[in-house]
Simulated scan of single mutants.
Amino acid sequence: MKSVFKISAIALGMTLAACGGETSASGGAAVGDAEVDTSQNWVEVVSKTEDGGYVMGNPDAPIKVVEYASLTCPACAAFSEQSHEPMMENYISQGLVSFEIRNFVRDPLDLSAALLARCNGEGPFFQLNQRLFMNQDNMFQTIQTADQARLQALSTPEALQSGQTFVGFAEASGLIELVGGMGISDQQARQCLTDSAAIQELDEVRNRALNQLNITSTPSFLINGELVSGVSSWAQLDARLQEMVQ
């Protein structure tokens, strides 16, 4: 199993340092008088994208928002908590906005969580993703009390080759137990955590973000394909969306 990630025993310093920066392009041009479309319950329309993300909402929405997010990023967790209900009620359910999440994984724990968020496919992805963000503080606290020598052993090339690195990090952080209460069995979780194709896909999503979009921090946002600056919170994104639909 090949991974682009430099493994360390959770690497919390890297996680926090790469979280909450701003992007460099403007983005977010007005779309004029956008028309509401409530012909379907767009919140229930979820699909996987060619870019390796999961998108919720009207495929023909005039505003397409993409978030590059990390499940070990506190700023991303704050965005998830603040945006969840108003994003769905004010924009997605109205057919005005589609919202896609692409995992920008930055460390072994993040990758383990992302594999579990994607474990049951399209339908439950957003619910699992939100639950993992809600559990972020507990996840950090749990893994900090884990056997650090074991985490170091999981970081070796031999552990990566055996496929046990991400199983081990998920066990040490309590994530297998967490998703067990959301319809993912222990056996299924372990299969997802050793899925080499899924791991490679997450590598590729990250590499495209770095090399094609120059994304280096989370959360970062695209609006209608353009990287936006000055947006790292729900209040900032909401203000941008309001400007666009008026």
Rank of each mutant, 00 (worst) to 15 (best):
P74T: 10
C76T: 08
C76S: 13
F79C: 05
F79I: 05
F79H: 05
E81G: 12
Q82S: 13
E85H: 12
M88R: 14
M88L: 15
E89I: 07
E89F: 05
E89K: 15
N90W: 06
Y91Q: 03
I92Q: 02
G95W: 00
L96C: 03
V97G: 00
S98K: 02
F99P: 00
N103K: 07
F104M: 07
V105F: 03
R106A: 06
R106F: 08
D107G: 08
P108R: 04
P108G: 10
L109C: 07
L111M: 13
S112C: 11
S112E: 11
S112A: 15
S112T: 12
S112V: 13
A113C: 07
A114M: 07
R118E: 13
R118N: 12
G121V: 10
P124H: 09
F126Q: 03
Q127D: 14
Q127P: 03
L128T: 01
Q130S: 15
R131M: 14
L132I: 14
F133Y: 15
M134A: 14
D137H: 12
Q141W: 06
T142N: 06
T142F: 02
I143N: 00
Q144E: 14
T145C: 01
A146I: 10
A146P: 07
A149F: 09
R150T: 14
R150C: 10
R150K: 15
L151Q: 06
L154H: 02
T156Q: 03
P157V: 04
A159L: 06
A159E: 04
L160D: 04
Q161G: 12
Q161P: 04
S162M: 10
G163E: 04
G163H: 03
F166I: 03
V167Y: 04
V167L: 10
G168H: 08
G168D: 08
F169V: 05
A170T: 07
A170D: 05
A170V: 09
E171D: 15
A172F: 01
A172K: 01
A172W: 04
A172R: 03
S173W: 09
S173T: 09
L175G: 00
I184V: 15
I184P: 02
I184M: 09
D186A: 11
Q188H: 13
Q188V: 05
A189V: 00
A189K: 00
A189E: 01
C192R: 06
T194Q: 15
S196G: 09
A198L: 02
A198S: 11
A198K: 09
E201W: 00
D203A: 11
R206S: 04
R208D: 10
A209M: 01
A209Q: 02
L210E: 13
L213I: 05
L213E: 10
